[in-house]
Each structure stands twice: as C-alpha cells, then as structure tokens.
Design a protein around this nucleic acid. Structure first.
Lengths: 300, 300
DNA sequence: GCTGATTGATACTCCAGAGGTATGAAATGG
DNA sequence: CCATTTCATACCTCTGGAGTATCAATCAGC
C-alpha cells in the first residue's frame, strides 16, 4: 500500500467508474483495475461491490474513503509545508529572553515579527542570562534577547536597545530625598543584587560602579530574579541598582532615582551557533528595523 | 513522494546514520542514500545537514519528522482498520427506529450491542414508520426497529417484541370508569390518531378494530407524532388508541385502559436491502437473543 | 603528517512491478 | 438478438528502485 494506491482508490470511490477513474489518474483502465484488485488483496477486504456493470462502495470502502481523504490531505500538506519551513515562512522559533527585556523589547519584537511571519510559532522562554547563553550554545534556543558583550560564540548579534542602571529605594529611605545618587552614597547601604552566576553583566557593572571611587559594595542578599530584588527592596531589606527598563511600574512604596554616570549596557538579539533555523533571518531584519527606534520606557 | 520515502526519512531522522537507517529498512546503504537525496530534491528543501562524518536534521527536517510520524500513523491505522470494518468489529451502523420502540426495545438492543461491538458507532435516527421504510430501501439506514408485516423488500427480519393497542382517556372521562372498553364504546368519541401516511399499521389496526362491529370511527385530529396524540388527549380534545409501550409513564390527568380483543402487532428489527453493512449480522444475533425475552412494560 | 577505519556519495547492473495494448466476458437496452 | 458499455485477463514494455563495487572525505591514533 502506498499513497498512490490511495489516490487510485479515492478516484474510483468518487467516480464509481473504472474507466473515468483511470482517466483521472492519467492511465488506461486495465492497469487501473489491476491496482484496485491489488489494493483489496493486500488490505484483505473488499472495498467495492462490483459486477461488469455497476460499481459501489462497501461499508469498509466508505470508511476507508474517509480515512484516505484525511491521510492524503495530511500527506500533501506535510510535503508542501517543507518548503515553507525551509524558507522560514512557517515553523517554530524558540526565543529566549531575560526578564528585563520582557517589558518593552520582547513585546515589540514579537508583535512586528508575528505580523511578518504569522505562521511561525514563537516559543518564548524567559530565563536568566547565563542559562540563555548555555541554551544558545546547545541549540535549545534559536535566538535570544540578552545582554551584549557575551563571550559566547554567537553567529550574529544586533543591538536592540541600550539600558542603564538606576537606583531603587523605599519611598521613606534617606536616598529617596536625593535627585541623583552617586557611588559613595551606596557605601554604607545593604545592596541587593543577583549573583554573578546569574547575570555577570549586571553584577560586574554594579561592582565596577562602586569600585571606581574605591567603595566596596556590601551585597546583603543575592536572589536570582530581578522581580525578587524589587520585592525585597520594597520590604525594606536593602536597596538595589537595577536596569532602568524594570523601573517603569514599581510597587507602591518604592521609588527610583537616576545615578551619576550610570553604567550602560546593550540589549541585543543574538542567534545560536548551533541552530540554523531559517525563521531567524527575518527576525534579525525586524530587530534591525526596530534597532535604535526602540526607546526603553523611563519612569515618569 | 510516497509513504515508503517517508519511512526512509523517519529512519534516518531517528538514527542519524545512513548505514544503520538503511539496515533498519532492510536494504543497503547506497540506494538508501539515493532515496534520501531524491526526497530532498522532490520536496525542494534540505532535510539533513550532512558531511561525510555527521548527519543532523535541519529545522525543516525536524518539522517534517513530526508530520511524517503523524501521517504514517494515520496511514497505517487506516489500512489496519479496513479489515476491522469489513468484519464488522469497527465502523458505523445507522439504526432507525419509531418512537414506540424508543422506550424499551431500542435501549436494550443498543446496550447489548455496544457491549459486543464497542468500536461500532451507532447512529440512532428516530423517524416515523413510513420514513423508516423509505430510508431502508434507499440504504440511508442499515437497520431499523419498526412494525412487522411491512410490504417493503427487506432482506432479513426478526421479531423483537409484540405490542398491542390500549385506550387512553382523560382521568375524568366517562370511559375512565370502565375496566375494559370495546369498539362500540368508541362510536361517539372524537378519536385522535396519526394519519395512514405516517403509520399505516396503527391506522389500519384502529380502523379495522372499530369496523368489526360496524362502527365508523370519527378521526377528529391527525397529528403525526404519538407524543402529540397523548398531549392532545390530555388537553381533552379527544381520546386515542396507542401502543401499550407508550402508556408506561402517562402525564398527570391521563389514564389508560385495556381494550377487548386488542389488536396486536410485531415490533421487528429489519435490515436494509440496499445496505450490506458487516456490522449488521451481530445486531441480529443480539436481537434474536433478546427476542422473546423482551417484555414491553405494561402500565401498572 | 601519514595510515587505516568509518561513512556518505557515485557508477553501473539487474529485476520487480507499474503501465500500455489487445482482447475477452458479462450485462444492458433497443 | 445484436450493439454497446464496462470490468477483467493476457501479454509485453520499460521505468525506477535496489544491489555490488568503488570512490572521496573525514577523523583517530601513532
């Protein structure tokens, strides 16, 4: 049995006439009759009730007809889809992103891309930057939105936005009274920041920022998620320097302040070396078009 | 492209090794390699990223693999199901029945049959007897539960139960006082009965019953459905002779009475001449086993 | 850097099976 | 009863899938 046999069967089931069905299959009637007989033999059941005058489907034939139509439709669709997937018009794209990209960059990127490639299913995975890097290398992600300047071997990288550090403190904190803070203001404070194993970029930026005037930062708590950091600051357990993009909608009781000579870092789209998903290039096109135009929401 | 090619592709996608995949397909490696190349050519897309050392799926290949597995599973299932349908183990059975069979005969029949043939989907169609007969002849029904003695050309018929006529009247009707009624009691009454075009069996039985002592029945109203007849009697618009099987759960305000020498009629299972559904014979087996054992509920 | 082993690609041959033509057999209609 | 329609059978042809032998490229180990 093969799909060709199924097509013969469907042709006969629809015409109920060997000659016409054979013509539809662009062949002559005798070999067509033989194929139908062969199908019935290999399947081990009569599909047609026929004499030299009339052809009719049996109950098994009627049932088989339905199944054949479905199978053939799926079969043809699968074959047709291959080119679409290969050309990146259809398929699946695994996009990783870190949390501070979730607010503005990723939604804008996803919206624009989905308009251009509605048949590509975007699988979004929010992860911490170090995991993202690992997954990119292993090919478990096709692309990711993460910090620039990573040491990983990435095929392609494009700038999406620039972000900078900003101070968040409880509303009644002494630093809340300042219009702008500097490294020395942080000297006596309990700092909350993710460990270097989670986001080396941020951790290094904070340490270098404090170290420039010789301040040794005191990291009181080290949660892994930026959301947790914000939450702990709101609980009065310390203060934090976090990406400006996360300061847009702070909880009641929290306030953010700019800092002098705030460290900046790139937020980039970067492709996996391992994956060569044909849906990726268009995402980069979209990302480049978005590029500078994209401004991260600063707090009001 | 054919299912055989899909199987080759799946074998290679699963082993990622031309030699092993070829062995799994019981063939040597060179023709196998050629088939894979042919597949990629006809589909117009690379499915494998390969050099003389490593084989890996492309994105298109990964997508195609999923689709191939689904298509092949459906394909094999379709081929396997044919014998099951031909042997009556699986499939669909269109069973027509008239309303007075709905209460006891059909549920018992369906329950027993479904136990024996759980993979046969029973399509139940309640119709008036004349429609049932027409549908049986045209093959739109495979079998039906209807009155016996039909003039139609039925292949096979088996007795399911015997039913008899019974009188229903409003609770305060003068005939409600009698223990048993006879034809002459009906002479002056407004009778309600379905027209002969709907159920000739019942209509003829009622007319003959009245005619035997010379009474000419007065048919006041002629609804098509037995339910409607009962409803109209409850409204006080007349009285009716209906099958005993419909007298089990009469509405408040209605009462049923036996009648003298009540006309009886067979309720039979009969097969369509046009349809030769292999699921039918087992239904007849079940029906015969049920046969005499089945007693129609008489009113308490 | 050379050598042998592994693995995919190519060249050539062979044959099963799919398709063509001619024709037979059965049923239908006038 | 004959012409026509329609499915089945007989026989032939040839495409295309599969086998064998072999090449080419890559990698491991010395």
């Amino acid at each position: 049995m093969d799909t060709r046999h199924m097509r013969y069967f469907v042709a006969l089931a629809e015409t109920l006439h060997f000659g016409h069905a054979a013509a539809r299959m662009n062949m002559s009637q005798p070999p067509f009759s033989r194929q139908i007989a062969a199908i019935e033999k290999t399947l081990g059941a009569r599909l047609f009730e026929r004499n030299s005058r009339n052809v009719a489907l049996t109950a098994a034939g009627r049932h088989f007809l339905e199944e054949c139509r479905a199978v053939l439709a799926d079969f043809d669709a699968a074959c047709r889809d291959v080119q679409l997937v290969a050309s990146g018009v259809k398929g699946e794209l695994k996009l990783g992103f870190m949390m501070n990209a979730a607010y503005s960059v990723v939604p804008a990127l996803v919206r624009l891309y989905s308009e251009k490639r509605p048949d590509v299913r975007l699988v979004l995975e929010e992860r911490i930057p170090t995991d993202i890097e690992e997954m990119l290398i292993e090919g478990r992600l096709d692309v990711a939105v993460t910090f620039g300047g990573s040491p990983a071997t990435h095929l392609r990288t494009t700038l999406l936005a620039r972000d900078r550090l900003r101070l968040i403190v409880p509303r009644d904190h002494r630093l809340a009274k300042l219009d702008i803070a500097g490294p020395t203001d942080l000297a006596t404070e309990r700092l909350i920041a993710a460990p270097a194993s989670v986001t080396p970029t941020l951790r290094d930026a904070i340490r270098n920022y404090c170290a420039s005037p010789g301040v040794v930062p005191h990291f009181a708590l080290e949660p892994r998620l930026q959301h947790t950091i914000i939450r702990l600051v709101a609980e009065g357990l310390g203060i934090a320097l976090i990406p400006q993009s996360l300061c847009a909608d702070l909880a009641e009781g929290l306030i953010s302040r700019p800092i002098m000579d705030a460290p900046e870092f790139d937020i980039v789209l970067c492709a996996s070396a391992a994956s060569s998903n044909p849906a990726v290039p268009v995402l980069f096109e979209v990302a480049e078009r978005l590029g500078g135009a994209l401004s991260l929401r600063a707090p009001g």
